[in-house]
């Protein structure tokens, strides 16, 4: 009977918790409604601050409590979408309101949740004053804080932190793709440091660096040097690096790599051959069609599919003709049919 009483008591506790959660949710619902009303009321003020009608700029409203929070959230929302002067105004507001300093202090709070929140919010406050604190946060024991700090450094486009970001990826303190997203936000200023990583002993880092260079390089000051730098990586020991280098050359449209890429169509690894085919499709040129045709006809699925698509891009008429040959293979036929869509 004691067992039954104990279990019934547990069930009643469960029921009570559900009822309490309903009450809590009800009060949160009322709060959310008030916030939604405040958001609609303050939106014009926020827009005026971000994009003023005259050169003088709109004075920052003096707000407190929930209204200050809602106004801050509106500006954070805009900061994710806007660049230039609008961002400067948003940063100026948060700095003047003391929000940036408050969040910088929270980066050293005992609560992990507070540190993650601060690291994340600082990225959306657009204030460069937070960069040194976020750099220190990259050493935080919590992976979530480090990831949030990396994201924020990217959002702030803090080019001076490129090395720290790459180092965090190299030492696996922050996941590669998270750092990758941050470096893409920073943009072309990240390229010089990425170039130095091309000699890194770890093939994962070489591959990540060359992949990012491919994405950022065309707008970088070093854009002219890259086509000469990258072909050497097509002979790297690591298949990942060779494939990433091929993709990068394709993105950069680097015709200097054309011959090396044609050679790479004979690589022993299928995904490297596929990357070479994709790159040749982006670089183009009539000299590559014969090699691509051979791959499209006879290679394994992925390289053949990519070669057929590359050919369709370079020389659609050739694909339409070649697809009718008895030895065309399925990929040229598919590419021809898709050309006619």
């Amino acid at each position: 009977m004691t067992l039954m009483a104990g279990i019934i008591a547990l069930a009643l506790v469960g029921v009570a918790l559900v009822l309490v959660s309903l009450v809590v949710r009800s009060s949160m619902g009322a709060r959310d409604k008030r916030r939604a009303e405040a958001t609609e009321r303050l939106r014009p003020l926020a827009m005026e601050l971000v994009d003023p009608d005259d050169d003088q700029g709109a004075p920052a409203p003096v707000l407190a409590g929930m209204e200050a929070e809602v106004f801050g959230d509106l500006l954070v929302h805009y900061s994710r979408q806007l660049r230039g002067e609008a961002e400067d105004r948003i940063a100026a507001y948060f700095e003047a309101a003391g929000e940036v300093d408050a969040q910088r202090r929270r980066l050293t709070a005992r609560s992990e949740r507070a540190r993650v929140d601060a690291a994340f919010r600082l990225g959306d406050m657009a204030s460069a004053a937070a960069v040194p604190d976020l750099l220190r946060a990259m050493e935080d024991p919590s992976l979530d804080v480090r990831a949030a700090a990396a994201r924020s450094l990217g959002r702030l486009r803090a080019a001076e932190t490129v090395e720290a970001l790459i180092s965090a990826a190299v030492t696996e303190r922050v996941a590669d793709p998270v750092v990758g997203i941050a470096l893409l936000e920073i943009g072309p200023p990240a390229v010089p440091r990425l170039i130095t990583l091309l000699d890194d002993p770890d093939p994962h880092h070489r591959a990540a660096a060359v992949r990012l260079i491919g994405l950022l390089g065309s707008a970088a000051a070093e854009a002219d040097e890259l086509p000469a730098l990258l072909p050497a990586l097509l002979r790297d020991m690591s298949a990942d690096v060779r494939a990433a280098a091929a993709d990068a050359l394709g993105r950069l449209g680097a015709s200097a790599g054309r011959d090396a890429l044609i050679q790479l169509l004979h690589d022993r690894v299928a995904f490297v051959r596929a990357a070479a085919a994709r790159a040749l499709g982006q670089i183009g040129g009539q000299t590559v069609t014969e090699a691509l045709l051979e791959v499209a006809r006879a290679d394994e699925f992925d390289p053949a599919a990519d070669a057929a698509q590359a050919l369709a891009r370079i020389d659609p008429a050739l694909v339409l003709t070649a697809a009718e040959a008895p030895d065309a293979g399925p990929h040229l036929r598919e590419a021809a049919d898709r050309l006619e869509l």
Partner: peptide, 18 residues
């Protein structure tokens, strides 16, 4: 639950690495 606020889904959506 609290981490959901910091997923950065907009960044994932915009990233060519996804």
């Amino acid at each position: 639950v609290w981490r959901r606020r910091y997923l950065g889904l907009d960044d994932v959506f915009a990233s060519p690495l996804t």
